[in-house]
Design a protein around this nucleic acid. Structure first.
Length: 565
RNA sequence: GCGGCUGUAGUGUAGCUGGUUAUCACUUGAGCUUGCCAAGCUCAGAACGCGGGUUCAAAUCCCGGCGGCCGCACCA
């Protein structure tokens, strides 16, 4: 669309979106969802939940928004999720450190904290405003900081992604999943980033909504049970090292374009979801991250992008995060965040070992026997083969151990499984961006007449109910019809004001898929008119069939298919 | 964060070389009318983003926040 402002103005007017805290002058990066926006957001999330929790069997969690500092020390956000700033000791003004270094270095942004500080100092850079002395570069972290508890409170942060809550719960997720891989969790919720310059409506918010899935795999078995069902489906790909191409999952994986079957599967699921909720298939693509664009944790990453009035916008990132996150939390917390994979049959591993002869050694080494035997047992067989003695190092003391003290032996060890840190595939959705894109892709204008062709699945209002005239009992029939639709859980809207055309228009503008009109003939034949939003076609349906007919229309079936009812 | 532009009813706007009751349209509500696609008539409701300054007088001029748009930067 040419001008996103038109759509944003519709959103404000019709209760999809309002700028937050407007009466106090507003706050950049924050938006309110009005009644229709809130309903639409719930609809998007419900469908996502249906695909991921119901169909794929992922476990939904709800974790806190605030996390203690240690979580982000481990995840790397404390270090890497930041920009470098310097402050003037005189006037207190702050500057982006790499900007002050402009012209002093080819690429100041690439410098480390200390290098940048040295560079500025060596060149006697001072405050551009007051010539005062500057501090060493400091990090401005993009996480919102807060404190937990009173007094000597601990630092806490608002999460910049919902993902960490799932990583730290790996053991619980794994256990709940009966200790089998792959297993995964999802979370739908808020995340926060203190953006320097939020812009573009819903596309860059400081407080936003995510839907994320973290799916844990054996590092060598990154596939998914339902991969086989969809491997012939086609994805629209823009690989980092080649031209755009449409490719089946099977071809993409076998050619190495997509790293593995699991990643391909979740890309397909992402595409399916996007199309289901109404992203225009002709205006979306998967773009692979360049190596230098990849986040610190990822090994392969594809963004689902959609074309909007703001250009191509990232809606979903589908990343293979490797073992980065779980490994990091394992290391920092000391918790055993590993999975154990039992072999079908315990493996018998036969190997040659050096076996100490304790009776001989005991007589020779007395109190040192245990320590020396321990060292000897660790020696590789080849180190002692065909030799009369071997020299071992015991706390710096060289000890000569004669060959009578040990023997080479062949043992059979039983290994029942592998213990490993799982790898993670992560689809990460921006709900707000998705919602905005759906509105844009649904936006149609013809002769100043605006229709939102929203999918019935996400439309905030499913059906408008009108009496042709608000009298002669038509309104009573319409009211009863409205009540019965609402009783079925359908979001309906009753309207008896003004001309019928105006009422249709009002519903078209907020994307309501169909409208039901009660007219004078209804009193004779018990039938009503159902009108389809996109074609304006009408069919007559019996009052008793309205619920079923409306349900059909919401699911995208043509109004003609209702005529035979 | 930097530079440019900008801010008037719910929406879009006129006024902005200072000076009547701030223009118009749509929207909204009430009434009349209306028998399937934003029809008409009457009435009503609704705005100068905020703070300071200049002036007898500020929507209008000046300054500073705040918000928006565009470009740069940023977007782990």
């Amino acid at each position: 669309m040419d001008d996103p402002q038109e759509l944003l103005s519709l959103c404000k007017r019709r209760g999809f979106l309002w700028p937050a805290y407007d009466i106090y002058g507003g706050a950049a990066g924050f938006f309110d969802y009005g009644p229709l926006g809130a309903a639409m957001k719930v609809n998007i999330e419900s469908h996502w939940r249906r695909l991921h929790v119901l169909e794929e069997g992922l476990q939904e969690l709800v974790c806190p928004v605030i996390a203690p500092e240690s979580v982000f020390e481990a995840s790397g956000h404390l270090d890497t999720f930041a920009d470098l700033y310097v402050e003037c000791t005189g006037c207190g003004e702050t500057y982006r450190a790499d900007h002050l270094a402009e012209g002093l270095h080819d690429n100041p942004a690439a410098l480390k904290e200390k290098e940048l500080g040295d560079l500025l100092r060596e060149n006697d850079v001072s405050c551009p405003a007051c010539k005062g002395e500057l501090t060493a570069p400091k990090r401005f972290n993009l996480m919102f900081r807060t404190s937990v508890g009173a007094g000597s409170a601990k630092a806490g942060y608002l999460r910049p992604e919902t993902a960490q809550g799932m990583f730290v719960n790996f053991s619980q997720i794994y256990r709940f999943g009966r200790e089998r891989l792959p297993v995964g969790a999802v979370q739908i919720g808020r995340a926060f980033r203190n953006e320097i310059s939020p812009r573009q409506g819903l596309l860059r918010l400081r407080e936003f909504n995510q839907m994320e899935a973290e799916v844990f795999f054996h590092p060598e078995r990154k596939t998914w049970p339902r991969y086989g069902n969809v491997k012939a489906e086609v994805l629209s790909l823009v690989p980092s090292n080649g031209p755009p191409t449409d490719m089946s999952l099977l071809d993409a994986v076998s050619s190495g374009t997509i790293a593995n079957e699991a990643l391909a599967y979740f890309m397909w699921l992402t595409q399916r979801f996007a199309v289901d909720v109404g992203v225009d298939p002709d205006r979306m693509r998967f773009r692979q991250h360049e190596k230098d664009e990849m986040a610190h944790y990822a090994t392969d990453c594809w963004d689902l992008e959609a074309e909007t009035g703001y250009g191509w916008v990232e809606l979903v990132g589908v990343a293979d995060r490797g073992c980065y996150d779980v490994q990091a939390h394992l290391k920092h917390s000391g918790a055993d965040l590993t999975a154990f994979e039992r072999f079908d049959e315990p493996k018998e591993v036969t190997k040659e070992i050096v076996r100490p002869k304790y009776d001989v050694m005991g007589k020779l080494f007395r109190g040192d026997t245990k320590a020396i035997a321990g060292i000897v047992a660790q020696l590789p067989p080849d180190a002692v083969r065909d030799r009369d003695s071997v020299q071992v190092d015991m706390d710096g003391r060289k000890v000569e151990v004669p060959s009578t003290c040990y023997e080479l032996a062949v043992t059979t060890e039983k290994i029942s499984g592998d213990k490993f840190v799982p790898h993670v595939i992560e689809p990460s959705y921006g709900v707000d961006r998705m919602l905005y894109t759906l509105l844009e892709h649904a936006y149609r204008v013809r002769d100043d007449y605006v229709t939102l062709s929203l999918k019935g699945l996400v439309a905030p209002v499913k059906v408008g109910v009108f009496p042709l005239m608000a009298r002669d009992g038509l309104d009573d029939i319409a009211r009863r019809l409205y009540d019965s639709l609402v009783a079925e859980g359908m979001a309906a809207y009753y309207d008896d004001s003004g001309s019928i055309g105006r009422r249709y228009a009002r519903m078209d503008e907020v994307g309501t898929p169909c409208c039901v009109t009660v007219d004078y003939e209804t009193k004779e034949d018990g039938q009503v008119t159902i009108r389809d939003r996109d074609s304006a076609d009408q069919v007559r349906v019996k009052l008793d069939d309205v619920i079923c007919a409306v349900r059909n229309m919401i699911e995208g079936r043509s109004p003609q298919s209702l005529a035979s009812m």
